[in-house]
């Protein structure tokens, strides 16, 4: 991947200008690629293969499903870049990290969306001066505990009301624990986000559109990587193979954690998938609902893009472990 070198250029968005370079012709190249794709459509027999078309359906459907949430996310991140200053964050968030982290987690209640939208928002919060521990807690909590997700969980499990409570508690707990862990670690050299964009004299509207567009192509590019990985793994590892371990509680918990990572399902809909697997225990399905919104293939790709690859490599296993442990503990108490 080429993010490291690209980010260097990205950090000075108003710098280099290459007059007469490739940049002028990029939209034309895009048109040419689309026309070429239309022309080859009927000429390549491989495109008619059942599995290739199924892969295409899975890949495109993950992208289309994520699109509205990604757009909502970058609109919010554009607004944050324009209206939220480090001063404002200092005034609103409690000073002490032990308090700032759960406060940021509860703020997640207010964002009705799924995980794709919260990644650019968290990135923008960090560049606007929010302590990273608080922004990361928001990143993990928002897609899991917002009202839309909790209502859809209640609809999917009409006879298991305690599961909704367990999901809320376990997800919130996991987000706060990861946030505190990051606050203690306090190693900001790992984070590699866009620097705060100071006002360059252009109007607020221009800046809003610029930032929202930049965050869209940035997070969107990584979303595409994740969607390709999810579509490919679904074809390589059929779900029926995974479903043969239902009898063993430990195996089912591990399987559901793996399933959540591989399937990369939107947090607003994962409850329906879990409800469709009734042969498994409620606790193992709670693991699925707690892990999915905080870490999965497409999220790892997006975290690497927005926060840097080194960060993603450490953040993913810690988050996965904390989410599984939190879900199992809460499941023991509540389910």
């Amino acid at each position: 991947m080429h993010d490291v070198s690209e980010r260097g250029g990205d950090a000075h968005p108003h710098g280099a200008t290459r007059r007469g370079g490739l940049g002028d012709y990029q939209p034309l190249l895009l048109v040419a690629a689309i026309v070429a794709a239309l022309l080859v459509r009927s000429r390549i027999a491989w495109f008619d293969d059942g599995e290739v078309r199924l892969w295409a359906t899975l890949f495109v459907s993950v992208c289309i499903q994520a699109l509205p949430f990604l757009v909502l996310g970058v609109v919010v991140s554009g607004l944050i870049a324009v209206f939220v200053s480090p001063d404002l964050v200092r005034r609103v968030l409690p000073r002490h990290p032990a308090l700032a982290v759960p406060t940021a987690g509860l703020a997640g209640l207010a964002l009705p969306g799924c995980e794709c939208g919260s990644v650019p928002i968290a990135g923008r919060l960090v560049s606007s001066g929010t302590p990273p521990a608080a922004a990361l807690t928001f990143l993990l909590a928002a897609p899991a505990i917002n009202p839309v997700v909790l209502v859809s969980t209640a609809v999917a499990f009409p006879n298991d009301g305690e599961l909704v409570l367990a999901r809320f508690v376990a997800s919130f707990l996991a987000a706060v624990v990861v946030g505190w862990w990051w606050a203690r670690r306090n190693d900001h050299s790992l984070l590699d986000v866009d620097p705060h964009d100071h006002d360059h004299g252009s109007g607020r509207l221009a800046r809003f559109v610029d930032i929202a567009s930049r965050d869209f192509v940035h997070a969107g590019g990584y979303l595409v990587v994740g969607a390709m990985a999810a579509a490919t793994l679904q074809l390589v590892v059929p779900r029926s193979v995974l479903a043969t371990v239902a009898d063993n509680e430990l195996l089912s918990i591990l399987m559901f954690a793996g399933l959540a990572v591989v399937l990369s399902i939107c947090s607003e809909a994962d409850a329906f998938v879990a409800a469709g697997l009734p042969q498994f225990s409620l606790t193992s399905r709670l693991v699925f609902l707690v892990v999915g919104p905080v870490i999965d293939l497409k999220l790892v790709a997006m975290h690497a893009g927005v926060f840097g690859r080194r960060f993603a490599l450490i953040f993913a296993p810690v988050t996965l472990t904390v989410a599984v442990v939190s879900a199992v503990l809460v499941g023991q108490v509540l389910l």
Binding site: H2, G21, A33, A37, V40, F47, G220, V224
Partner: peptide, 25 residues
């Protein structure tokens, strides 16, 4: 118009569009 305004990874967004018009899932 020619200044760098986004990471190269953004070009990957063209992939689902190309798949949509070529493979026609």
């Amino acid at each position: 118009g020619a200044r760098v305004a986004g990471p190269g990874v953004g070009w990957l967004l063209a992939l689902p569009l190309l798949v949509l018009v070529s493979v026609a899932p």
